[in-house]
């Protein structure tokens, strides 16, 4: 008999993500089809790209007829935060064997939060949580894409879900960190980029200059410590 309880704990852990990914995936599916992407392509994107904000950006660039270089740079910039997720999971994923490539591939913001908050360090459980989250995302995309292709539905304004997600993630980051520095720095860089740069380079300019300022901040802190020692 197949061991069903090995799915029960991962399912319970992934429930909050399911409630987020079904509507957000549906919002993506609706937006993708509205921009002119076929239903199968929207679902394929959720299968092989699997990045919330990244996929919204991808269909926006697809709709704008952006080139492959623009898409590559924009995706790299938007997903650069993933670079730092891996660092804290180097030990956690050690010894996960054949599951490791998938665990790394499926490392979204939400899966990262779940896996880092799990007391249970079991690789099999981590794999099942990742797989379930991916499934909710694909299911949401399919529902949204199919519904928007077949049913009259006034979806004007649904893209605000992405703005709302960013606001929620920022508040979560603020309550975790309780420091003004990164937020003040980000506001300054974003405002400067908004005023000084053309719209298509705004994100790159803001995130690039914020990273540089953090580097400067690190050196200043290190020099201060050196002077005190």
């Amino acid at each position: 008999m197949y061991d069903t309880h090995r799915w029960r704990a991962p399912f319970q852990a992934s429930l909050p993500v399911m409630f987020g990914y079904l509507p957000l995936g549906a919002a993506f599916g609706i937006l993708a089809v509205e921009i002119g992407t076929p239903v199968w392509a929207a679902v394929l994107m959720s299968l092989v790209i699997y990045a919330g904000a990244g996929q919204f950006l991808a269909v926006a660039l697809l709709g704008a007829g952006a080139g492959l270089v623009d898409v590559t740079v924009a995706t790299l910039m938007l997903n650069s935060r993933h670079l730092f997720y891996g660092l804290s999971l180097l030990k956690r994923f050690k010894g996960s064997g054949w599951r490791k490539p998938y665990l790394i591939f499926a490392l979204t913001d939400e899966t990262y939060s779940l896996l880092t908050s799990q007391a249970n360090q079991n690789h099999d459980q981590a794999f099942r949580i990742s797989l379930l989250n991916h499934l909710w995302w694909m299911l949401g995309s399919l529902i949204g894409a199919a519904a928007s292709a077949n049913i009259e539905f006034d979806s004007r304004g649904i893209e605000f879900a992405l703005t709302a997600l960013f606001i929620v993630l920022t508040l979560e980051q603020a309550s975790r960190l309780r420091r003004w520095l990164p937020f003040g720095l980000a506001i300054a860089c974003a405002m400067a980029a908004l005023i000084l740069l053309p719209d298509r380079h705004m994100l790159l300019g803001a995130i690039g200059s914020a990273s540089l300022l953090l580097l400067v901040h690190y050196r200043m802190m290190r020099d201060n410590q050196g002077a005190q020692a």
Binding site: L78, S80, T170, A186, A190
Partner: peptide, 10 residues
């Protein structure tokens, strides 16, 4: 510090 800064920029 970079992840919260990126979220704020977004």
């Amino acid at each position: 510090y970079l992840p919260p800064a990126v979220m704020m920029i977004l």
